[in-house]
Each structure stands twice: as C-alpha cells, then as structure tokens.
Amino acid sequence: MNNNTLIKVMVPAIGLSVALVVAVVGYFVLQSWWSSPPAVLGFGDGPTQPIAFPHTTHVTDAGIDCQFCHRKVTTDEAATIPAVAQCLFCHDFGKIDGTKSTSDTAAAELAKLFDDSGEPQPVNWIRVHRVPDHVQFVHAPHIQNGVSCTTCHGDVASMQVVEQVRNLKMRDCVDCHRDNNAPTDCATCHY
C-alpha cells in the first residue's frame, strides 16, 4: 500500500467513525433532553435503595394498598414515603421477620431498619421521580379525577426496584391536560 491509497481509506474511515460517535452521543443527549435517557446500559434503571424494598412482595403478594403506605396521595401535593415506624407495624421483632420470604437476603435487608442498639432508624430513600423545583406537582387532583398510579408510574406493583417509566416532562403533562380538559395555564404548574 502506498501513501495515496492509505489516505483514500483512512480519511473516509476516520470521517465515518467521527460521524458515528457524534450521532450516538447526539442521540443520547437529545433523547435525554426531550424525554428520558434511553433504557440501555442501565440508564433507565431505578436507583439502588439503601434497603432493597420490593413493591412486588408488599403489593402483589401481601396485598397492601398503595395508600396504606403513600398516605397523602389522595389529599395532598406529595404522596409521601412511609416512616420507619410504619414498616414496624409489620416488621417489629417477633412479627413478620422475612422468614417466610423466598429470598435469603430478606432478613438481612430488614435488619437495616434498626441500628446497632436495636433502635429503629430512619431510612434515606433515594428519590426516583422528581420534577424540577420550578414545577408544582400535586397528586390529589389527579387521583380524585381517576388518573391511576399506573398511568404515570407504570406497574409499580410488579417492580422489584422502582424505576421511572414515563418521562413526565412538560409536554407529557400538558398533552394529557389538553386531552382531559384540565387547566393548561402556565400558572397551574409554575409559580
């Protein structure tokens, strides 16, 4: 191979690979900007929580209602995450201790509810869904108007780890509001 053919091959090859890298990165950035990051390489996954709390076990197997734990969801802005005290209704010593669970890590996970001296300690759950600070989201009117949890959060009842399935960006909110004759005034969500 002389220099000329090398250049003839290399230049388009380098050009193509640069274009490819730009296209892939560009796709990621634009997709994440307008919607949510593409669900590959673990990008769409929910965060690892301090305690592996499975919604499946509690909702599907134990049959607990969403509102038993997310108490404020029908009346307030935030759905709220239950305090440890509420886990202890069922998981205090001598009650449900994870022994009936099929997973061998269950007891170890439950032990994390208590510190070394056996006192219950608050859990620092990691937020999964979060709208920016300049958006005022309220759960109550949605639930009262029959929008179900699954519409926005997906099938949480069968999730081992909660992850965000709907992008819940402004267009997503406003499109549904338009379809349902809900308010679309900017000051509904921004103030």
């Binding site: 920016p132 300049h134 005034d185 900017c186 000051a187 921004h190 103030y191």
Partner: peptide
C-alpha cells in the same frame, strides 16, 4: 409575564 384567566398578572420564573 402574561394575564391569566383569573385576572392575575402572572410571572413564569422559569420562562
């Protein structure tokens, strides 16, 4: 900043 249908002059900070 615009007038909404409730008679308020609204300021949309993020805009």
């Amino acid at each position: 900043t615009y007038h909404n249908n409730e008679g308020l002059n609204v300021q949309v900070y993020n805009r």
